[in-house]
Design a protein around this nucleic acid. Structure first.
Length: 358
DNA sequence: TCTGGGGTCCTAGGACCC
DNA sequence: TCTGGGGTCCTAGGACCC
């Protein structure tokens, strides 16, 4: 007599802010904002705000300068990535100790594959395990697949548990705007709206040819399934292997001359190369990303090289791309990405696409 | 108010070949 | 003089996520 399989999605509550408050107990109950170097005079954005700060309308991705203006007495803290990595590893270890498959999604998120006839009880056990091990609180979504588990978590926040399945999908999600779906952002929701598709239920009821015509054969079908809450049930704990590494920097002062840009490209390409070498891999493609200053314009360029482990090759490729940037515009952000040959020599494109796994 | 840094995957369209 | 249909590879760019 086997028990029912479930997907659980565990999401830490205000993770980064919570980690900071743990080591500074005097900050409990205060509006805490973590971002950049913690200096609102610099170009930076909010990584995480505590619930006290969110009440003022501060959220992730907001310019730090604006956040500081909205909450004048906020405690501003710099991002301390090593501390969050360490806390994250503790969280994941506590989840693995439950004896289930754990698929890590990021610092503060994981899917669990479980078999249970009382998933709510299991979710509470997971919360207790994380709290005991790390003193951090989390919310848990329960689903009959990954899509529903992931979306369910939002309804459980904070510190709660919520179940979303085929039985209550439309009741819970049907009248919500499509942008509430995981994988639908502002651009796609606007393109859907052009076809009169505003809600999740309308998306689910849309004929496939309409979606395929707008988004192509792969994404079109996928958005249709998303509207019905359909998705993969496979929780995969195999170790994550990066396809590439990138380094990018927003300059406090815009870069104006080709010489400045070239120097910046050299530096970033060198760092991305170091990250690749640290993985024991070779580079087969280099990408240069630029954000020009006057307007929010983003551009990327790519260049193929034979797979290489030579720093000079990678820098030369990046510089060649830099030679094609618009010389009339100021540069405020530059990024260089090195894509890597897989350890077995295979092409990264051959790997299972994440879309197919959702 | 003025938009980080690290990633992943998909699509359109041109070049080229048979 | 104008042109098919199918295939692959590559580049550029877009979109989304945490």
């Amino acid at each position: 007599m086997s028990e029912t399989p479930w997907v659980l999605h565990v999401d830490l509550d205000q993770f980064i802010a919570a980690v900071e408050v743990l080591r500074r107990p005097e900050l409990v109950g205060l509006p805490v904002i973590v971002g950049g170097r913690g200096d609102p005079a610099e170009r930076a954005v909010v990584s995480t705000a505590s619930y006290e700060a969110r009440r003022y309308g501060v959220g992730s991705g907001m310019p730090l300068r604006l956040a500081a203006r909205k909450v004048p007495d906020a405690v501003l803290l710099p991002v301390d990535a090593p501390a969050y990595t360490a806390a994250s590893e503790q969280v994941m270890a506590s989840l693995r100790s439950l004896g289930v498959v754990v698929e890590v999604l990021g610092w503060d998120e994981a899917f669990l594959g479980i078999e249970s006839d009382d998933p709510e009880a299991f979710a509470r056990r997971a919360q207790a395990a994380v709290l005991k091990s790390t003193r951090l609180h989390c919310s848990v979504g329960i689903g009959d697949n990954k899509v529903r588990a992931k979306i369910a978590t939002d309804f459980g926040k904070p510190r709660g548990v919520f179940r979303l399945t085929a039985d209550n999908w439309f009741e819970v999600m049907g009248e919500l705007p499509t942008i509430e779906l995981w994988g639908v952002g502002s651009k796609v929701s606007q393109r859907l709206a052009k076809h009169g598709i505003d809600t999740v239920r309308q998306l689910a009821d849309t004929d496939e040819p309409v979606l395929v015509g707008e988004f192509g054969p792969r994404m079109g079908l996928w958005y249709g399934q998303l509207g019905r809450g359909m998705g993969s049930t496979v929780v995969d704990d195999s170790p994550w292997i990066a396809r590439g590494h990138s380094r990018e920097t927003t300059y406090q002062r815009n870069l104006t001359t080709p010489e400045e840009v070239a120097a910046a490209v050299r530096e970033l390409a060198s760092q991305a190369f170091d990250d690749t070498v640290a993985d024991g891999r070779s580079v087969f493609r280099v990408t240069l990303k630029v954000r020009y200053a006057p307007f929010f314009t983003s551009t990327k360029a790519k260049k193929l090289a034979a797979p290489t482990t030579d720093r000079g090759d990678v820098i030369a490729a990046a510089l060649a791309l830099a030679g094609r940037l618009d010389p009339e515009r100021e540069v405020r952000l530059l990024g260089v990405r090195a894509e890597m040959v897989m350890p077995d020599g295979g092409d990264p494109a051959e790997r299972t696409p994440i879309r197919g796994r959702l």
